[in-house]
Every structure is written in C-alpha cells, then in structure tokens.
Design a protein around this nucleic acid. Structure first.
Lengths: 169, 169
DNA sequence: AAGGGATATTTCAAATGTCAAAGGTTTGAC
DNA sequence: GTCAAACCTTTGACATTTGAAATATCCCTT
C-alpha cells in the first residue's frame, strides 16, 4: 500500500564520483548533503506546523523586517523568482500569517509583512528549526562547523564571481 | 516589458542569519551556495545540451552501470523520489538516450540503461560539467576544496544518523 | 493453489519553479 | 502637460517536485 515513498536515503553511499575532479566531488557531496537536510526539514515542518520550506523561508525574511518587504525584495533575498512570490504570499495571506498592502507613495509596490499570528507562528517554527539543525549536526565538532561556514563562504564568493549571467565587473 | 525576471542573485548578501546558531548559519550558507551553483549549472545544461539537471543526474548513475539500474535503485542514488523517476526516464526514452526493459525474472521491475547515443551525449555533458565547476571554484584553494569535501562528509554522516525516519538501529 | 504481506512502479493532486509577456504606475525629458 | 522608458507585480503556459495512494507483481506460508 501507499507507504512514505520518500527515497529512504540510507546514507553517504550516494555515489560521490570515485574518479572525478575534486571540484565535482565536492559539488556532488554538497548537493546530496543539502538535499538530505532539506528533505528532513521539509518533513518536520509539514508534520509539526503544516508549512512548506519555501513558506518558512519567506516568513524568515519578513520576521526580520517588521515593517514588511516589497515582493521584489523578498524574491532577491530568497532566491525565489518573482512570479513565484505572488502565489506564495497569496497562500500565506489566506492562512492569516501574512498581510499585503500597497504603500501610499507608490502604487506599483506591494509590501508583505507578518501578521501578529504570523510572527507568533514563525517564532515557534524558527526555534524548532534551530533545534533540528543542532540535532542533525550533533556529531560534528563545533570548530568544524564554524570552519565550514567560513570555507563554504569562499566557495560561494568564487562561484558568484564566475557566473555566466553577470560577470560582476 | 517582459525582461528576464530571474531573481538576479547578486551575491552573498542573501541574508545568512546574523544572530543565529552556528548550525543554522552553516545550513543557510550551504543552502544558498548550493542553489547558486545548481541554478548556474541548470542554465548551462539547458543552453548547451537542452537537458535538465535531474536528467543529468540520472544519466550519471546509468553511465556507471552499463548493465542498467532498476528505477528504485536510481531513486535512492539520486535522491529523487520514485514517482519522479517514472516521468524522467520516460522523457529520456523519448529522446533516445535511455532504454527501458523488464527483466525476465521479475516483471515488477523496470531496468533503465543508457543507449549508445545516451552514453555519447552524457560523456560530453560530463566533461562540460566538470569544466564549469572548475571554473566556478577557480578562486578556491585546492587544499580548501579537499578539506571541505572531507568536512562536509562529516556533516552528512551526522545528519544521516539523526533522521527522524530511520534512527539507524 | 490461495492469501497475506512485501516490493516495485505508476498515478494523482497540490505546491513550487522557470521563463516570458502583460498590466498598471511612476518618472523624466521635452 | 504628454509620452516614452523604467519599474514592480501579476499572469500564463508548462515542467518539476513532493507526499500519498493506487497498481501490479512476487514470495512465503499454509
């Protein structure tokens, strides 16, 4: 019968290429690790809060900006395309977690911000979220974690400087 | 008028939480970095080969197993859910890159493997793929890359051991 | 050989994601 | 003032993803 269907990713035998270049091996490992974590977070968000990961991301942005954010700004911060923000915010508004309004100055703009209830709900989600991550990474030395944070930052910078779209200069 | 709409992700100012726990900060940074890279790879795969990232992942698995793989096995290795494999393989079959067959022994099973043309096409994609990654990570010290590979592996192991689904024992 | 339970794949609805174009608004040059 | 260009959001057409349920097949016990 219908079971959980989720690819029960047993572990790290996911096939990081054995004879690939270092950059490729790192990439594959980052990709599978990220997917592992996000699948887990998605599962827990759904189970405990009935929320999705994109919704969580969006609310996280609004949580930091009590005055709200323009939709375009949300798009940039979450790396979610514009067209997508519309529906996302719409659903959150229906749930009473987010509220949309047009500022007086510029009627092209729509600003979204958390409702009181949205703020409350997000605070709970964020706390849980942090706990989940701490649990999942419990076996990793704290020093390694901050070191990783630093080095992944280097990778991110390098990548950002070598995109095909906008060569930075 | 209709422009490119893609959230022109300028760089690392994506908002890694400033006062979050280290684990959360690492997670957010890994997530945004991964997204940055995969968006770029997706773009190039599409432009140069007319392929999608999941298709590439799938073919990568088949490339290593000349005798083919069961769909469920592909699902586990690529972390793509079962339901997804079906359509993915279907499209690749239409394109003549992959071929499906049911082994005599067990008619529940479907085995997919690359066609001659699929093998050829994938080899080209893999070479390009490796080059893109080398370019993107060009500013990162090789020692940092292999160190990262190692440490991300630790994170992955830890996470794998703390999933809600199968607590390992 | 019949049935229950496990396996493997497929199907389905809802949410998300991309890309491209269309709608309103504002701004600035004239 | 008026018009064109720039700006912000929404729409629309589709492909993909997820989670869960439905199908189909096999295996084991009786």
């Amino acid at each position: 019968m219908g079971e959980t269907d989720a690819a029960s990713v047993d572990l790290e035998i996911i096939a990081d290429g054995p004879r690939s270049k270092p950059e490729t091996r790192l990439w594959l490992r980052m990709l599978s690790t990220t997917k592992l974590i996000s699948t887990e977070i998605r599962k827990r968000l759904r189970a405990e809060f009935g929320a999705t990961l994109p919704q969580f991301d969006l609310m996280a942005q609004l949580y930091r900006e009590k005055d709200g954010l323009r939709l375009g700004e949300i798009s940039k911060r979450t790396m979610v395309t514009n067209g997508n923000i519309t529906g996302l915010v719409e659903r959150l508004e229906v749930d009473g977690l987010v509220l949309r309004e047009t500022p007086d100055g510029d009627r092209r703009v729509t600003v979204a911000r958390l409702t009181a209830r949205g703020t409350e709900v997000f605070a709970a989600m964020a706390a849980a979220h942090e706990g989940w991550l701490r649990d999942m990474m419990a076996d990793v030395d704290p020093a390694v974690i901050s070191h990783l944070w630093h080095d992944v930052g280097r990778v991110k910078s390098s990548v950002a400087n070598h995109l095909s779209g906008a060569p930075d200069e």
